[in-house]
Write a protein that binds this DNA or RNA. Structure first.
Lengths: 223, 223
DNA sequence: CTCCTCATACCGACCGGTCGGTACGGACCG
DNA sequence: CGGTCCGTACCGACCGGTCGGTATGAGGAG
């Protein structure tokens, strides 16, 4: 697996803002970023356990000492990966909710965003889906709280549409929510970035299907 | 991790039929079965890599020597787990296809079966979904061939319904297939056996939702 | 019935290697 | 000089797999 040219001089000598290392607010190309990027790639390819710290630091072109300067442990690296992805999705969610609309419109926007962010950051999503359970209790709780919020917002959207009569109730709002996140979380398993379908096309197909599943049969009178 | 009493005498001294050890056709309570059961439990709980062979043999109340007598490697154990589950699902598929029916009826039966077998064998399914990629090339190819067959049958069912005009084509047959298997494969992540919904109820909800997603809007004239 | 032979089933100590993490020293900067 | 940043050398734990050996029972020979 060729790594390409690795000129030590080309590595900007991390003149990162010293002091508190705030995760997520990191100079591009910095040691931290390179480490996270290398970890994402390797975890996605071979899994968390089968990737050694040595491989990560080699791919990031730094040494172990550097890595353990910025991260407390290998698990810490994993947490950064999750945190980056879910934080973006939550920010997107707030933006979409802020824009307003009918439950149907909002749900479509949410699904499209989930599919697009997932396909954009496929490696992160793959790692997230596959290795989430490796986290220890504390970071796991933080992640689950974020997830939970996302789920609750979505479920309430469905429930609101059902209460309006805009959506059918063949499946409960909870089940629909779990179905939708099941679809999205499974995406990294089969989505091919170089396939014929653009992320946007795929997102629309999935949103169409879900909204069709929620549609009230037209023969119904507005009971 | 207390193992409880482990009386050597209580272990039936595997008077298994000597000669060919055919995997899958194994005396209940035999050493092989106990090993697979222990492995399923531990892999589901802590993941493949984080489970040591020592832990497996302790849980099965046998020794390492016994394990390596029956299985070539730790991976071999993993393969047995997959093989058992997918073989059952393929057998069910054949039974369902044999019974005949419209694409809608068959699809419903298939989804119900998938959900029921998955919830019945939740630990196996969880391991399958999470650790499949750990297999080496050869067994992986065998598994993928079985999976592929299942997918193709399902996709053709959808495509046939769409060609008939019985199903809408908002999402392509391929996408619908991937969506459905996405839902099913994600089941072990959130399904609670002790929750309020029976497997059958859940299966019906999911099947209803999928078939609603495939339904032709009633306002359509039969083009 | 008895003895010998041999295959199967299993035991458990052990090994080579790997891995996450640490100790410590030095370079560079303010 | 003191803190940040990072390199190097190394440690101790653990793990998958091996291997020499034993126990048991079936089956043939005499």
């Amino acid at each position: 697996m060729a790594l390409g040219a690795r000129v030590p001089g080309s590595v900007v000598p991390g003149s990162v803002v010293p002091g508190s290392v705030v995760p997520g607010s990191v100079v591009p190309g910095s040691v931290q970023e390179r480490l996270v990027a290398a970890a994402v790639h390797l975890f996605a390819e071979k899994g968390f356990d089968s990737t050694s710290v040595q491989e990560i630091v080699e791919r990031a072109a730094v040494t172990k000492g550097a890595m353990y300067h910025y991260f407390r442990s290998k698990d810490d690296l994993l947490y950064e990966i999750y945190h980056g992805l879910i934080s973006q999705q939550l920010a997107d969610l707030d933006r979409i909710l802020g824009a307003g609309g009918t439950p149907g419109e909002v749900i479509r926007a949410v699904i499209v965003d989930l599919v697009e962010t997932t396909t954009e950051r496929l490696a992160e999503a793959a790692v997230f889906a596959r290795e989430m359970h490796k986290l220890s209790a504390e970071p796991m709780a933080a992640l689950k709280a974020q997830r939970r919020r996302y789920h609750e917002v979505f479920r309430d959207l469905v429930a609101r549409g059902q209460a309006d009569g805009a959506f059918a109730s063949v499946a409960s709002a909870d089940t629909v929510t779990l179905i939708v996140f099941g679809i999205v979380n499974q995406l990294p398993r089969w989505y091919q970035p170089d396939g014929p379908k653009s992320p946007r096309q795929l997102a629309d197909e999935i949103a169409d299907f879900v909204l069709a599943g929620l549609a009230v049969p037209a023969s119904y009178p507005a009971s």
